[in-house]
């Protein structure tokens, strides 16, 4: 796709929103405002920013516990996401989920699933429902390459293809399942081959290139929407930060991380846009200012939020009588 100025700006801004939001999250974690697990997406922003454009408001999005970026790009207000990280009642899941369980009915964002591969069977069912109801919708299911080792990956791809349901399986391959490198957990590290073994069309994409992600996802989503059955995309990407805030990163060298840094999707895209004359330094500064303002407001919203009264603890386990 040719990049016009508006699209270029929007893609860059989405990536920066994720980056700055998460940098703030890390800071707030150290300050004790955010607790539990916090899995940062820093380095992988091109995937969420590029892929989610392919989906309309009626499509369903399923993601993993590393989903802040997807939530923001999907349109969940940053304040509601940040309040969720704080555990406040104003959070998008009323504070009950936290960082790993972002849910939002309005944007059809169905988690925030912290069981690796746990969302894939759901995606097959979401897509089956759309097929049965003759709705031209796509279900987008994000997961990491660690999910490929789970039986649910294999069961779900087989089921989705067997029933030709409109599901798009989006694998974010950041090379490490927590601390286990892909080649230490998979006898065959070619992920697309695994999808193809279920006759699911599969493609590998440079996940550090936001335009490549956008184009590949748009094409795959259109084919899935047209009734061609499920597809699989592998985005080759890299996590710059630790797996979670508890990770001492004993499993990879600093040199390896440094080798990936020049491929930072924000850095490379910014350079490209400058070279093509699509953005200049004042333009970049303007985006940074907008993003900083959005995040400041999100933090203020979370800070001002309230704690759910303990009397409400047992609510929402079962449907409440109307």
């Amino acid at each position: 796709m040719t990049l016009d100025r508006a699209l270029a700006r929007s893609l860059l801004k989405d990536m920066l929103r994720i980056r700055r939001f998460e940098e703030k999250c890390a800071e707030l974690y150290s300050a004790g405002k955010i607790r539990g697990f916090l899995h940062l997406y820093i380095g992988e922003e091109a995937v969420a920013a590029g892929a989610l454009r392919a989906f309309g408001p009626d499509d369903a999005i399923l993601a993993t516990y590393r989903e802040h970026g997807h939530a923001l790009v999907r349109g969940i207000p940053a304040g509601a996401v940040m309040a969720e990280m704080y555990g406040k009642a104003e959070g998008c899941s009323r504070g009950r989920g936290g960082s790993m369980h972002i849910f939002d009915a309005k944007t059809r964002f169905y988690g925030g699933n912290a069981i690796v591969a746990g969302g894939l069977p759901l995606a097959a069912g979401f897509a089956l429902a759309d097929k049965l109801m003759r709705r031209p919708r796509v279900t987008a299911c994000f997961f990491g390459e660690g999910a490929v080792a789970e039986g649910e990956f294999h069961e779900s791809l087989n089921l989705a293809e067997l029933w030709k349901v409109p599901a798009l399986f989006l694998c974010e391959n950041n090379l490490y399942a927590m601390g286990t490198a892909l080649d230490r957990s998979e006898a065959d590290t070619d992920l697309c081959e695994k999808a193809r073994s279920y006759k699911v069309p599969a493609r590998s994409v440079d996940g550090m290139d936001v335009v490549a992600v956008m184009d590949a996802t748009a094409r795959a989503a259109a084919e899935v929407r047209a009734g061609g059955g499920p597809q699989f995309l592998e985005f080759r990407t890299y996590r710059f930060r630790a797996h979670s805030m508890f990770d001492a990163e004993l499993y990879r060298s600093k040199a390896e991380v440094e080798q990936w840094k020049p491929r930072c999707p924000i850095l490379t895209f910014t350079n490209r846009l400058k070279m093509e004359g699509l953005i200049d330094d004042p333009g970049l500064a303007a985006i940074e200012a907008e993003v900083a303002d959005e995040i400041a407001k999100a933090v203020a919203f979370a800070e001002a939020g309230s704690w759910e009264p303990v009397e409400n603890l047992a609510r929402h386990v079962y449907t409440e009588a109307a």
Binding site: A60, Y110, G118, L120, P121, L122, A123, A124, G125, F126, A127, L128, A129, D130, L132, M133, T139, G151, E152, E155, S156, N158, L159, L162, W163
Partner: peptide
Amino acid sequence: ERIRDTPLSESAFVGAGIGAALNGMLP
């Protein structure tokens, strides 16, 4: 369409039931 044989994939088809229920069906 409405009486669906599944593979021997308990996790996938139970999960698919959950997904379909979340997406408006009564599986």
